[in-house]
Write a protein that binds this DNA or RNA. Structure first.
Lengths: 337, 337
DNA sequence: ATGAAAGCGCTAACAC
DNA sequence: GTGTTAGCGCTTTCAT
C-alpha cells in the first residue's frame, strides 16, 4: 500500500532506526545522513503511519476538544483558536461533542478519549459534571476554558466581575429596576451563571437594591430562550427599565421580543449582554467583551506546555480581562428610572 | 499501562481473537461466549487501543472535516451536523483547518490526511483549488459541501437559483436599481459566487435589465467586508434602491453601514441575503434560507455510505432546496424605483 | 553515529 | 465456534 519506513531506509541506505531518528529531528544523526534520509522520504512521498507510530511510542500526537455545542459562537470561536495552535504544533485535533441532551452518549467521555488524545480541552462544561470529574481523575492532561478548577490549567473571565460591570453600567445610567436573563434556574452546577448572578446582585447591593426574584428570567443561553424570557419580563405589571442578559445571544433574542412589541432597545428599555459576539455590533448592543479566540489559543498553549511539547506560555493561566463596550442599546431610563 | 485485549481474553477464558470478534459484534461467536467477553471487558474497563486496531486493520475509524474558517457560522454549523453523524456512528472526527492565508500550511493537505482518516468532508472549498484537486486524486473517499463536483458525493444549494430568487423578490417589489455584494472579484475559482452572480444577472435579464458593473461591490463574505462594500454603494451618485448580498454575514455588515448613515433597511434601501443565519431573524433580514446543518449531516451520511459503513442515505445527493424568507428588510422602493 | 531486534496491541487468515 | 499465529509499521533499548 503506502510507502513504509523500510523503503525509505533502503532508498537512503540506512536502517529504519536511523530514518526514524532523522525524520523526527532527533540528535545523533550525521548531517549528511539526515539529508539523505530527508531526500529519500520526500522522493518517495513518504508520510509516517500515525497508527504505527502511536502504537510504538504510546503518544497519539493529538489533542481533543470536548464541547457541548459546536455551532454556537462561543464554542466555535474557542475551537478556532485551539485549531490555530494545534495546527502550528503539528498535532491532530479531535472534536468530541458531548452532553447534548437530545443525543445522550452511550459511551462515557473518558472512554471516548482514552488512547485517542494526549490531552483534552474542555470548553464551558461545569466542573461538577460527572463526565468532567471522570476526565479530571483519568490522569489525562486537561485544560479548561470557561471555568476555574483548582490544580488544572484554566482560562476564563471573572464572571462575577463581568456581570458587575454590566449591571453597574446600567446603574450609572440611572436604572434602578434592572432585570436579569440567566441561563437556567439559579442554583445549578453551571458555575458561569451562578457567578454572573452573584455579580449582578453585588452591583445592585452597592446602591442598596435587593435583588427582586420576579426580575429574574431564564433563557437557556439561546436566542430563542432569550426571546421567551424577555416576553415574560415585558408581561410584568411593573416592567424593568433595563435588562442584563448573561450572554449576547440571549440579548439578541431579547431584542427580537422588544421589536415584536414595538419597543426599541436603548430607548424604551436598555439591554446589555456579555460576550462581544460579532453580531452585537450589528444590532448596536452594549456588551462586556471577552477575548474568546485568544482564550482558545491560550488553553491550547497551556495544554501543550503541560504535555512538555512547548515552553509554558508567557501569561500565567487563569483569568483574562473583559471590557465594557458601550453602544446604543443602553441609555438613561426615559423617566429617570 | 492500559488494559489490553490479552487480559480480557484471560479473564474470559478465551483467545484474543475471540475477544476481538465478540467486541466488534462479528458473527461466529457463541452468545454465551460473547456475554462472558463483554462482561470481562466491562469489568476491566477495557477500551480497544485505536492505534493497534488501526495498524492491524488498516482502517482508522475516523473521518476528517477540511475547512478554511472554523468559526464562521456556515462552517461551524456544517461541522455540527457532521459531528452528530460521526458521533452516532462511533467514528472519530478530525478537524483540519486549511487555506487561511494568514497561516499557510507547510504540509499539503493530502499529506496531513494520509493514514489519518478513512474519508474527508470538504466544506466550501473551490474544486479548482490545487489542494482539493490533490485530495480528490488521492483516492481518499470524499464528500463535498457547498459545491458540485462530478463523480463525487456532494451536497449544495443551487446557487444560481437562490440568487435568482433573491433578486426576483426585489424585482417583484418594484426595484430596478439593484446592487450586488459579492465575495471577491467575479471570475475567481470560487464557484459559489460565480453562480450567484449568474443568478442575479439572469433575474435582471427577465425584466430586460443589463447588469451594471458599478453596482457590484465586494465583501469577501465577511461582515466587515459587507460593511465596506455597502459604504461604496452608498457613495455612488446614483444609489441602488436595493442590495442583494451573497451572504447574510455581508448583509449584516451592510446593515451596519446603513445605520451609520442614518438609513433604515426596508425603508430607505432594501436588503436581502442568502443563508438563513440565525441572526437574520434578529435584524429582520430577508434571506434565502439553506438547510446548513442537514447539509453537514447529509455529507457525513453520504461519506459513511461510500465507506460501506451504512446503507446509502435516502435522498439522492446533490442539490438541496432553498426557501425565501421575506422579512422587514425588503419592501417596495420609496419612489416606485 | 548507526544497526539489530524486540515489542507496542490489535486483526485476519487459516486451521481445527 | 474458537484458537494459533503472523504480521501491521513504527519506536526504542541495547549493542557496537
Amino acid at each position: 500500500m503506502a510507502v513504509t519506513i523500510r523503503e525509505v531506509a533502503e532508498a537512503a541506505g540506512v536502517s529504519t532506526a536511523t530514518v526514524s531518528r532523522a525524520l523526527r529531528g532527533l540528535p545523533y544523526v550525521d548531517d549528511a545522513t539526515r539529508l539523505r534520509v530527508l531526500a529519500a522520504a520526500a522522493n518517495l512521498d513518504y508520510v509516517v503511519s500515525p497508527s504505527a507510530s502511536r502504537l510504538a511510542s504510546g503518544r497519539t500526537g493529538s489533542i481533543a476538544v470536548v464541547t457541548p455545542f459546536i455551532a454556537r459562537w462561543f464554542f466555535s470561536t474557542v475551537l478556532s483558536g485551539v485549531e490555530q495552535v494545534t495546527h502550528d504544533a503539528g498535532l491532530d485535533l479531535l472534536l468530541l461533542g458531548v452532553g447534548d441532551p437530545d443525543r445522550p452518549s452511550e459511551v462515557p467521555t473518558e472512554q471516548r478519549l482514552r488512547q485517542r488524545a494526549d490531552g483534552a480541552i474542555i470548553v464551558a462544561l461545569p466542573a461538577d459534571d460527572p463526565e468532567v470529574r471522570a476526565l479530571l481523575n483519568a490522569n489525562l492532561p486537561v485544560s479548561i476554558v470557561g471555568s476555574l478548577v483548582p490544580d488544572v490549567p484554566c482560562v476564563a473571565i471573572d464572571d462575577a466581575e463581568a456581570a458587575r460591570k454590566a449591571t453597574a453600567h446600567l446603574l450609572n445610567l440611572g436604572h434602578r429596576r434592572i432585570a436579569v436573563i440567566s441561563g437556567s434556574r439559579i442554583g445549578s452546577i453551571y458555575t458561569t451563571q451562578e457567578h454572573r448572578y452573584r455579580g449582578y446582585c453585588d452591583a445592585l447591593s452597592t446602591v442598596g437594591i435587593e435583588p427582586d426574584p420576579t426580575l429574574v428570567a431564564f433563557g437557556q443561553f439561546t436566542r430563542e430562550g432569550g426571546e421567551q424570557a424577555m416576553v415574560e419580563l415585558l408581561n410584568l405589571t411593573l416592567m424593568p427599565t433595563a435588562v442584563f442578559c448573561m450572554s449576547d445571544e440571549m440579548a439578541f433574542g431579547a431584542s427580537v421580543a422588544l421589536r415584536r412589541r414595538g419597543l426599541v432597545a436603548g430607548v424604551d428599555i436598555s439591554l446589555i449582554g456579555i460576550d462581544g459576539h460579532p453580531q452585537s455590533e450589528v444590532i448596536d448592543l452594549t456588551t462586556v467583551e471577552q477575548p474568546v479566540e485568544s482564550m482558545g489559543r491560550f488553553a491550547a498553549e497551556s495544554l501543550l506546555a503541560v504535555l512538555g511539547l512547548t515552553p509554558p506560555p508567557e501569561r500565567a493561566p487563569g483569568l483574562v480581562s473583559t471590557r465594557l463596550v458601550p453602544r446604543g442599546s443602553t441609555a438613561s431610563p426615559r423617566d429617570g428610572g
